[in-house]
């Protein structure tokens, strides 16, 4: 077996392990794995500060969605406003507690945690400072939480539920519902515009610089 090549300048497809020379791409370009077609790199023009701004927008919208009235129900002249947090607190009894926690976590708590983690990892870089301790773990956890944050699925669930009980009571959609939809849209935009490998490269550069100056 020949001596292994120098790993510098090489990248590996995470899906199929195919070895490639690191592509040099312009913003907007895309390099796919030569074997399985997985996207290896897709540089974007967006800056770290812009990614953080989008993520903060998601955070603010999520907080609004949590505390403002989500739906109002009126029957027999009585009107009842309910925010997500009201509903969650009203249901946290007995066997329903784990279910309520699962729902609450997947629709708002995990998206909010992702915002906090991304800021912890990347915000000092945007302001020209050294990365905080645990920055790499924070960025990795942010990535790992992605499939468990399900706000977009919840939005479709709300639509289904509204149709389902429309004839039982008259319902009005509150501001929190629209804020949640906006949070989902801005979050999707953020994912689409962010090149994760660029975030990792910037973090590596900042860590090297911080170590050199220490």
């Amino acid at each position: 077996m020949p001596a292994p090549p120098d790993p510098r300048g090489l990248v590996v497809c995470p899906r199929c392990d195919a070895l490639h020379h690191a592509p040099s791409l312009k913003a907007g370009g895309r390099a796919d794995c030569a074997r399985c077609g997985t996207v290896l790199e897709a540089p974007r023009r967006i800056s770290v500060a812009e990614v953080l701004a989008l993520s903060a927008t998601v955070g603010v919208l999520m907080l609004g969605a949590l505390f403002l009235p989500f739906l109002s129900i009126s029957s027999m002249g009585l009107r009842n406003d309910s925010s997500i947090i009201d509903a969650a607190l009203a249901f946290s009894t007995g066997l329903q507690t784990p279910l309520v926690l699962t729902v609450l976590a997947s629709i708002v708590l995990l998206p909010l945690a992702r915002v906090a983690l991304l800021w912890w990892a990347m915000a000092p870089l945007a302001f020209g400072g050294a990365p905080l301790p645990g920055a790499r773990a924070a960025l990795a956890l942010d990535e790992d939480l992605k499939p468990w944050a399900m706000a977009e699925i919840f939005v479709v669930g709300v639509a289904v539920a509204l149709v389902k009980i429309a004839d039982l009571a008259s319902l009005t959609i509150g501001p929190a519902f629209w804020m949640l939809i906006c949070a989902v849209l801005v979050g999707t935009l953020q994912e689409a515009l962010t090149d994760r490998s660029a975030l990792w490269r910037e973090l590596e550069v900042a860590r090297t610089r911080a170590r050199a100056s220490a």
Binding site: P4, P5, P7, L10, C13, P14, C16, A18, L19, W200
Partner: peptide, 28 residues
Amino acid sequence: TAREAGLVGCRRCHLAHAWGTERCTRCG
């Protein structure tokens, strides 16, 4: 493949490393 070449790839950030490297030097 990276394995055939005697390398190991990071599944998170795609960086190639020498065989036997414990943690990715870029993302940990």
